[in-house]
């Protein structure tokens, strides 16, 4: 039901908006939502942190970019290749990595992200190095080019809706319950007969899948990629989206991605003070709503409702 409402809202938004700038902004929000959604599955539900998530974003983007720009593949052929590669790498990385936990897992994933970043920059024959890779074709369905702002918007947000449906199903299934069990206590989950290692690897692969999908969309919608977009700061930004939005909340990913993408746009007016304000906003949100925006705002809403409700009951009594 919620997803239908969401889909309708997107459909209407797509019809109502006319400015290419707003389409572009919403497109980036959509791409970031996919990234946050994937990481939220890993962090919020399975309780495993990743400080190198931008690596999978980059792997998705560069695979499709290299295949289409250098080898003239169709983007639709490059898509499964990009997704497969990201998931395969995720599998190989997860095998040793998920032995680690806590800050050490953070460190491990951070290292993986850095190595991927260095490789992208240094393999300049294919990736174009630091200057970036140009000439990535836009998406097409038959004769229809999907390069207009509105088409990009629908492609991205269509994907987001699909991602939401899949993740929501997963969360409310047996797998989702098992994941939450791991999050609360890995040992207890293990004792209950959950194959924790296998499950953690699967979630890691799922989050890599979503990140690679986001990378694919980014590459074809912007037609240009450079390593900067996939660096350590991006990884941190994705983590921030998840935490600000609310961990273990699918809609929190949407909210977090929206806020973190829009914030710099709103803060333009502060010019040189932008960084100060941005840092302050992050801190204030986390200090007063440590559960993230979704949970935090809900709490405030419930409390105000209770407060409004209390006098009426006492009056009756």
């Amino acid at each position: 039901m919620r997803n239908i409402l969401f889909a309708v809202a997107i459909l209407l938004a797509g019809l109502g908006i006319s400015s290419p700038y707003h389409f572009q902004l919403l497109t980036f929000i959509g791409i970031h939502t996919l990234l946050a959604l994937g990481l939220n599955m890993l962090m919020g539900y399975a309780g495993q942190i990743s400080l190198g998530h931008a690596a999978f974003y980059g792997i998705g983007a560069y695979t499709t970019a290299i295949l289409t720009a250098h080898f003239n593949w169709s983007p639709w052929l490059a898509l499964p290749a990009a997704l497969f590669l990201a998931v395969l790498i995720a599998f190989l990385v997860a095998l040793p990595m998920l032995k680690l936990s806590g800050y050490y897992l953070g460190m491990g994933t951070l290292g993986f992200g850095m190595i991927t970043y260095v490789l992208i920059r240094e393999w300049s024959g294919f990736t174009g190095g630091d200057s970036g890779l140009v000439g990535i074709p836009p998406l097409e369905i038959g004769p229809v080019s999907l390069s207009s702002g509105r088409a990009c918007f629908y492609v991205v947000w269509g994907t987001v809706v699909l991602g939401f449906i899949v993740c929501e199903r997963l969360v409310n299934s047996r797998v989702g319950r098992a994941l939450r069990a791991i999050h609360d206590s890995e040992q207890a989950a293990c004792a209950m007969g959950i194959n924790t290692a296998q499950l953690k690897i699967s979630v890691f692969m799922l989050s890599a899948f979503l990140a690679a999908l986001a990378g694919f969309l980014y590459a074809h919608l912007v037609s240009f990629i450079s390593p900067n977009t996939f660096d350590f700061l991006t990884s941190i930004r994705i983590v921030t989206m998840v935490v600000i939005g609310g961990m273990a909340s699918i809609w929190g990913s949407l909210l977090g991605a929206t806020l973190i993408t829009l914030l710099p746009e709103w803060l333009h007016i502060f010019s040189d003070y932008e960084m100060v304000v941005y840092g302050l906003v992050l801190m204030v949100i986390m200090i007063f709503l440590p559960q993230g925006l979704t949970r935090g705002l809900l709490d405030i809403y419930e409390r105000s409702k209770r407060r409004a409700g209390v006098p009426s009951t006492t009056a009756k009594g």
């Binding site: 935490v243 600000i244 003070y273 100060v276 941005y278 840092g279 992050l282 801190m283 986390m286």
Partner: peptide, 16 residues
């Protein structure tokens, strides 16, 4: 993780 994000916010603030 919340404390980590707060310190990330603080680092951006201090840099600014």
């Amino acid at each position: 993780i919340v404390l980590i994000i707060i310190t990330i916010g603080a680092s951006i603030l201090l840099r600014g």
